[in-house]
Amino acid sequence: MKINKNLAISENGFCLNPVTGESFSINPIGAEIIQLFKAGMTSEKVVKELCTSYNIDEATMERDLYDFVNVLKHHQLIQADEKN
């Protein structure tokens, strides 16, 4: 997963897409996921990381991550050529 490299995200989860000028408020888990992707983690590793941190089953985590990634895609926060 590749988050747009210029995406700016603050500690409070305020996120600006500098290409479109759109801004978003992202909750703490969403912000954590973005930071993990920005650090270069794959989706699989993010799922594992969050399952451990939040004591959640893998299937639920995968489904929630899939939904969140779709929201990111919708708002063009993920680079267009990335399929995963």
Partner: peptide, 21 residues
Amino acid sequence: PMRKQFITDKGKAWAGISIDE
């Protein structure tokens, strides 16, 4: 470049943000 963030009923930008496009 700028994206209009708030547009008046006359279509004028009342707020906007500089962007990297």
